[in-house]
Amino acid sequence: MTPQLGVLLDACQQHARYLLAAQGRLPAPVTAAGISARDDDLVAALDQFAYRFTRLQDTLGGRVFRRLLVEHFGEPYEDSSLRDVVDRLEKLGVIASAERWSQIRAMRNTLAHDYPETAEEKAAAIELAREMAREMASMLDGMRAITNRTVPGPAAH
């Protein structure tokens, strides 16, 4: 059974919460020297950051987007490609840019495969990932607002 939109948004909220908490524990900015020092607290914060970034990106792109279109907007996107789903959400103004979402996906894959080799590149990647983490969090807030606004609760009657 496919989880309901609300359940999926709750799961995302948890990922976002731990993602932003990890972000709060990172030095601003993360520097190449800091990366090279491999301080335990920094490594722990980076691991948590990368893990929650990946989970949030996977859940939004892999599950929430489609459910939002089908369940909330009542649109026939049950079997559409992710690309079509993302393009449609861009048109509806739910996500700011389909291309930016692809970049966030590329960052997710980069974090998952530990690509940047040098400390300078790693530090730069984390700074960019930070911007993207904030974007995902506000995207989530936006989806919360949309679903709360148009699904009338008991108080609306």
Binding site: W101, S102, Q103, R105, A106, P116, E121, A125, L128
Partner: peptide, 11 residues
């Protein structure tokens, strides 16, 4: 380099 790399992959 990191920004261009992510932009190119996303594109």
């Amino acid at each position: 380099a990191v920004r261009s790399r992510i932009a190119m992959l996303g594109h």
